[in-house]
Design a protein around this nucleic acid. Structure first.
Lengths: 204, 204, 204, 204
DNA sequence: TATGAATGAGTCTTCATTCAT
DNA sequence: CATGAATGAAGACTCATTCAT
C-alpha cells in the first residue's frame, strides 16, 4: 500500500474511534486494531496520539472556516442577508455532513488541554469576529438593528453549535439540513430590521 | 476539623483544580496538595476522583435547573415575556457567579465518558424541553411567531451557553450580567411577535 | 464496660470476622464495626491487627495441645490404645466445637508469613513428635507394628486435619463427633497389630 | 525473545517467588525483578497478579489429577491394591518433584479468597470422590473392610498431604519417594482386610 | 516499510496505625 | 478510657512510545 493511502486509512480509523470513544478513552491500540496495522506502523506515520488528533481537527477547522465568505457589497452581489444565510447554510452543510468530526469537535476536543483550548478559542474567535464584522456592516447599512454585536455574534455561533450538535446526536427529531438553516435564519431575525428580511422567504 | 468543614474544603479545592487543569489533567495529588491534606484523607470523604467530580457537577446542575420557573398565565402574573426573561436572568446569574463551575460544565464535563455524556444530555434535554414548552405556549397565546419550537429552543440554549462561556473565559470584552441578559433577550426577539415585546424595555 | 470484658468482646468479633473473611481480607474496620467500638479503642487493647490474630491463634493452639495426654503405662492405667483414642477424641472435640477457630487454623493461618509458618510448624512438630513417641512406645510394647514412626505420625495428624476440615466446612455428610473419632481410630488400625485392638469396639 | 519463551520465563520466576514469599507478600515488582523484565512486560503476558497465580495453580492441579487412574477390574489388570498404590505413587511423584508448587498448593493457595477456596474445595472434592469410589469398590470385592468410605477417603488424602508437606519443607528426616509411598500404603493397611495385602510386599 | 515485544513513568486506591481532643 | 479524623507508605495496573529485527 502506498504511503498516502495507508496514512489516509489510519486517519479514517482514528476519526471513527475518536468519535465513538472520545479522545481519552481511545488508546493507540484501538486505532491500530481498527486499522489492522502494527503498533510501529502507527508511529511511522504519526508522531503521537495527540498529533493525529490534531491533524484530524485542524483539517476540519480549516474546512469549516473555508465556508465563510465575506459579505460582498458590490452592485452585482446578492442581497447581504442572502449572503449571510449562505454562510450559515454552507457551514451547516459541512457540519452535518461529517457527524463523526462534529462529534469530535463539540465533545472530544473540548477541555482536552490548555493547548487545545487555545486552538479552539482561536477558531471560534475567528468565526465570532467574522460574524461580528458582518453584523457591524449590517448596522451601517441599516439592515441590522442596534445591539451589542459581540454578544449577538456569540449568540449566533452558539445557536448553530447547539443545533448541529443535536442534529448529529439524534437524527430523529430535527428537520433536514435545508429547513434547519431556514429555522436558524428565522431565529436570527431578531437582529435584522424587518425590512432587511423582505423577500427572503420566497427564494428557493 | 469537623467532618463537614473538611469535606467542603476539599470539595472547594477540587473545584478550583478541575476548573484550571481539567478533569483528566487533574490528579488526586493535585487536589490534596491544594487542600493540604494527606492522600488518605481524600478517600475518607470521597470514593474516587470520579465521584468527587460527579458530586461537584450534580450539585451545579441542580442549582441551575432550580432557577427555571414555569411560565405562569394567571391573571395576577407578570407578562409572560417578562417571566421568560426572568428565567434567563436567573440562570445567567448562577452561571456567571461561579465561573469555575461554568468552566467545568462547558469544558471539562464534555466528552468525559459515556456516563457523563448521558447525564449532560439529560440535563440539557430537560432545559430544552422547558424552553420548548414555553415557546409552544407563547405560540398559542399569539406571542411567539410560527417556527419549529425544537430548533428555536436549541438556539436559545446554545446562545446562552456560548455567551456565558465567553463571559467566564474573558471577563474583559463583555457587558455586565444585567446588560448581558438584556442583549440575549433582544436576540430572542426573533421568536416573539413585535407586540409581545411592547413595554419590556422600560422595565427596571 | 470493664477492661477484660471489652477486650474479650473485641476478640470474639475478630474471631468471627477472621473466620468468615480470612486474615488478609479482614480489615481493622471490619473488626471495629462488628464490635461497635472506635478505631482508637482497638489499638488500646491490641498492638496491631497481626497481634490480635496471634493471640487468637496462640490461645487455640494451647487449648488443642492441652488435650494431649502422655500415654500412661502404669498398672492402673487404661489400655494404651484406649488412651490414644482418648487423645484423638479430645482433640477432635475441641476442633469440632469451635469451627470458627478451626477454619482459621486450617485456612487463614496457613501461608500468612514466615513468622506464622514457623509458629505453625512448631505446633504441628510438637503434635507429630508426641504421636511419634506414642507410636515408638507402642512398638516397644508390641502393640504397633514395624513402620517408620515419623511417617505414620504425619499420616495420623494429616488424617485428623482433613477430617476436621471437612467436618467444619460441610456439616452435612459426615457422622457425628463420636462416630468420627471411631472411624479415624479404625483407620489407624493400620499401625496397630491386630491383638492391640481386641476389645476396643465394645467399650462405651 | 519470542512470546512463548518470555511467558514461560516470567511464569517460572513467579512460581519461585510465590513459593518463597507467599501470594500476599509477593509483589509484582518482586516477580519482574526476578525475571529481569519491565513492569509493562508482565502485563503484556498476564492480566493480573492474581491471574498468573491462577494459571500456575490450575496447571498444577490438572497435572495432579491426571495421575489418578480408575481402578481396572479386568482379568488382565494388576491386582486392585497394586493399582491404588500406583495412584498414590504417581501423585506423590508429581508432588515431590515440584516442591515449589507443592508449597504453593499447601500453603499459599489456602485461604486466599472465596474464589480460590471454592476452586481448591472442588479439586480436593474430586480427589476424595475418586478415593471414595475405589474404597467402595474394594468393599464390594471384599478387599476393604467395613467403614465409612467418606471418612476413610478424607483420611487418606489428609495423610498424603501432610507427608508431602513435611517432605517438601524439610528434605532431611524423611525417607525417599519410593519408601514414602510404601509407608503411606502400609498406613492404609487399616482399610484393607489382611488378605488383600498378601503378596504386595515382595513386589518391586 | 513493517512489525510487535519491551519499556517505565505515572495514577489511582487501600488500609494499618497514630494522636489530638 | 474512648473517639474518629488524619496520615502516608505501599502496591496494582495502564498505556504512549521506542527500537531491534
Amino acid at each position: 500500500m502506498e504511503r498516502t493511502a495507508r496514512r489516509e486509512q489510519v486517519l479514517a480509523c482514528a476519526r471513527s474511534v475518536f468519535s465513538r470513544r472520545g479522545y481519552h478513552a481511545t488508546t493507540v491500540s484501538d486505532i491500530i486494531e481498527e486499522a489492522g496495522v502494527a503498533r510501529g506502523t502507527f508511529y511511522l506515520y504519526f508522531k503521537s496520539k495527540r498529533s493525529i488528533f490534531d491533524e484530524l481537527l485542524d483539517e476540519y477547522l480549516r474546512a469549516i472556516l473555508a465556508q465563510v465568505r465575506r459579505v460582498d457589497l458590490g452592485p452585482a452581489a446578492e442581497p447581504p442577508v442572502r449572503q449571510v444565510l449562505g454562510n450559515v447554510e454552507r457551514i451547516l452543510a459541512v457540519l452535518l455532513e461529517s457527524t463523526e468530526m462534529s462529534r469530535i469537535l463539540f465533545h472530544e476536543a473540548v477541555g482536552l488541554d490548555a493547548d487545545f483550548d487555545r486552538k479552539l478559542a482561536e477558531f471560534y474567535g475567528e468565526i465570532v469576529k467574522l460574524a461580528q464584522g458582518s453584523l457591524r456592516l449590517g448596522q451601517q447599512m441599516g439592515l441590522v438593528r442596534d445591539c451589542d454585536v459581540r454578544v449577538a455574534a456569540l449568540c449566533i455561533v452558539g445557536a448553530v453549535k447547539e443545533v448541529v450538535d443535536a442534529a448529529s446526536a439524534g437524527p430523529g427529531a430535527l428537520p433536514d439540513q435545508r429547513a434547519l438553516s431556514r429555522e436558524i435564519m428565522r431565529f436570527l431575525d431578531g437582529v435584522f430590521v424587518p425590512a432587511a428580511l423582505a423577500g427572503l422567504e420566497d427564494q428557493p
